[in-house]
Design a protein around this nucleic acid. Structure first.
Lengths: 178, 178, 178, 178
DNA sequence: CATGAATGAGGCTTCATTCAT
DNA sequence: AATGAATGAAGCCTCATTCAT
């Protein structure tokens, strides 16, 4: 069993549950069954652990985002944007919750990727002839953020029916040819 | 100048900016220009400060919620629910951000009031003949949560145009008689 | 009702129960139903309260001691020394407990009066022809200290039978003419 | 050099000299030449230090008491009870003083062991045909407590002559066959 | 005489981090 | 790579004392 990996997983779990400041390095070490010193050998500092987790999350986001960016049909863009929430496996909930928690605090969030998506969605709305494409994009993305929040905080939340209802409202159901 | 009140205001400001754990009692005292001991004289503990702020927020929420609950016309219910975000004065942003941050962490949120609103909104959708009233209510409330989040994190956010767009989608514009 | 006096009585009670360091000026003020500031107006400092109580105790001790010192017959001296414990009214237990507690801590006790008594008792033993008068005196006084301790710590302690037994051992019973 | 042990010894010394509340954890750390944090690593809290010392004392008491309990001859019981004071090595004076100080304050003392001894001594007096065995036992034990007090407070106190005098009064001298 | 808001020094404790082994 | 004893800065909180009213 890889101890370095184990430490990261336990950290994620505890950070997501109690917040970063609410989690002590000692508790991580105990939970992982390793010495406290080992955390620092592998990750230099508590912040190092957070950074490693952030990078992990960023990679996952990038993959999801890239799939959207690669699409060419407006309806495909919107559909996948909405359905991207269903692509988050349950085991990643903690990771996302952690990242959301951090973003919520830090004034200056790294928004570069979010901006790219917003652009893409805006263009999709334009392509579909919506009147206020920018606002439509914001509305959609904010709404999805709200769904994400509900999903992460409420672990047994059934998100798919809600997303299907959204798809219907935007007339993006599978049976509609794009 | 009321020092007790001042301490609460400064606390709110710092808590919202740096989080509760990220804010020291000493920093509150310094910022408020009072001795550290005075915090404890007035609020017993740091947690006492948080509780006082929670109560403040709960009162404000209760007022907003009551207005919605008192309405009888379905369209009025939905319209006010959506527009309730515009009823939050800018000076209260910090308070809401703090409360949201706390809720985000604590597993067991006090959902009693939220449930009442969800019921009311569900009934409104039913009254308007919507097919999946419960899901419509969830969708709407989650979306509004997303808007709230964007608004609180992004202080110069223009929320009203987005809400007007939502009203239009639900055909709740003022010019429509309810 | 004299507040100054009241403060002193409450202080005694709390000091005896929780020790001087274990008693806060705030608790005294609360218990006495006066403001904290008043303690300091009347007694200048917490130590001032202790001093006032010490003086109170010293006066009582002096009276007891003087009675013994004034006696001329050896047997009378011993008898009264032993019976002096019965002269402590129940309401003074707290005062004595406090003084004992303080003496127990402070390295340098004011032993002047105790020495006078020890001299007197030693001479009494000498007058009665005891072989090791000094040691007899020490033995007696230490034993009485032990009785005092038991009496003060155990409020419903029956001290008189024990003292009568002591009297008998030293052949000091009332029926014996001195 | 064992730092954990060292901390305990220094604590004992300072507690006995200044009382528990009168001793700061910082002073212990300084005196022991270790960081303040180390106290808490080893003993969790200041109270933890006190508990460790209490346990140490309880063990020593138990050993002394067991020796008495194991005796079968009445005279042996009384003789050892009286002489047990001489079994306390000078280096343990601080420990005993500390424990006595604590007992003096705490209302509810753990008297179980003391009761066992009192029983044993009472039976010994009965075995020797004393009229009021219970009272004789109380008298003896209270007196011994008084001797202990004098001995602990007055470090260069000569306790043995006093105890020998006691032995003689009870006719327990070694030359007397039991 | 009396109040009670206010102070500030200092106490106990936590925790990220280092380092010898 | 791994441990765990050790550190020390900093945090929350208490409490005797002061002072304006």
């Amino acid at each position: 069993m890889n101890r370095k990996q184990l430490i990261l997983e336990i950290s994620l779990e505890l950070f997501a549950k109690n917040g970063v400041v609410g989690t002590t390095t000692k508790s991580i070490a105990n939970e992982a069954g390793v010495s406290e010193g080992l955390l620092f050998r592998h990750y230099q500092s508590k912040e190092g652990l957070v950074k490693a987790l952030k990078k992990l999350a960023a990679d996952k986001v990038r993959i999801l985002a890239q799939e959207i960016i690669d699409l060419t049909q407006p309806k495909d863009v919107l559909r996948l944007t909405i359905l991207s929430l269903t692509k988050i496996p349950f085991k990643d909930y903690a990771l996302w919750k952690l990242i959301l928690g951090i973003k919520f605090q830090s004034e200056l969030a790294d928004e570069s990727l979010a901006d790219v998506i917003e652009d893409k969605v805006t263009k999709a709305f334009k392509g579909l002839g919506f009147a206020h494409a920018e606002m439509e994009a914001e509305l959609l993305l904010n709404s999805l953020n709200g769904m994400l929040l509900a999903m992460l905080l409420n672990k047994q939340y059934e998100i798919e029916p809600l997303l299907n209802l959204m798809l219907k409202k935007y007339q993006l159901n599978k049976r509609n040819l794009n």
